[in-house]
């Protein structure tokens, strides 16, 4: 889930921080620049782990700062593919479930990665899994049939529940506000995308709400035998 990334950068130290030991001032400067920011293709930076190497501070023409070339190790949030993590449900809609880790909430479970057969209940604003419907027939039941099922047999994935999810892939977007783009004379509206999103799956035995698997272990074994 977390990893160490080695990064090299040249950073200015303001004269106000000259009184501090250089290492301390540098760590503060790095944290200020990187903490809680997404580095493209690296991940979400949390904090400096340690300094690997730092050169002498140099004064450049034009400002009073000391510029340091510094190599440091950064604690970065970047779960690897197929890693299993725990996350809370932030919200659900027709397109899937959005999860949150507290410090990072661009974690999504799209419809394709929900346990089948599943459907979205617009009244409850939550997805539910209907394990009974799977055993009857190999073909997937329609959404209408699923929504007609008795509420008691549905396994809801409610907001705030803790899910165990497997990371399927992650994507980085580097959307800088550049010049307006146009194809065939039509101006394309840019929408801001999250710089880093993680796509997860719960379509597997043992994944999904932690509570499903905590209490009913013998029952799931029986289920597996039937399927």
């Amino acid at each position: 889930m977390f990893q160490l990334s080695i990064v090299k950068d040249t950073l200015p130290i303001l004269p106000a921080a000259f009184a501090l030991p250089p290492e301390q001032a540098l760590i503060a400067a790095i944290n200020k620049k990187y903490a809680n920011r997404v580095l493209h293709e690296v991940g979400l930076c949390i904090a400096v782990f340690d300094l690997v190497e730092a050169g002498e501070g140099r004064v450049r023409y034009g400002d009073g700062c000391l510029w340091y070339k510094v190599t440091f190790r950064m604690v970065v949030f970047r779960p690897f593919a197929s890693e299993v993590i725990l996350a809370r449900v932030k919200s659900s809609d027709e397109e899937g479930i959005r999860l949150t880790l507290g410090f990072f909430d661009d974690v999504y479970v799209p419809l394709a990665y929900l346990p089948q057969p599943a459907a979205f209940d617009p009244n409850e604003r939550a997805h539910f899994w209907l394990p009974e419907a799977a055993t009857e027939d190999a073909s997937a039941p329609s959404t209408h049939e699923l929504l007609d099922s008795p509420t008691t047999s549905r396994m809801y994935i409610d907001k705030g529940e803790v899910l165990r999810v497997r990371v399927e892939m992650d994507e980085f977007y580097d959307d800088e506000p550049g010049p307006p783009k146009a194809t065939e004379g039509v101006r394309i509206e840019r929408e801001r995308r999250a710089p880093y999103t993680v796509t997860c799956s719960i379509a597997e035995q043992g994944l999904g709400p932690v509570a499903w698997w905590k209490s009913a272990e013998p029952a799931t074994d029986a289920e597996m035998d039937q399927a």
Binding site: Q3, K8, D9, L39, V42, R78, F80
Partner: peptide
């Protein structure tokens, strides 16, 4: 800024 090694080691949550 230059990323020398994006994943030099994995860290446990602890």
């Amino acid at each position: 800024m230059e990323v020398i090694n994006p994943r030099s080691a994995l860290l446990s949550n602890y």
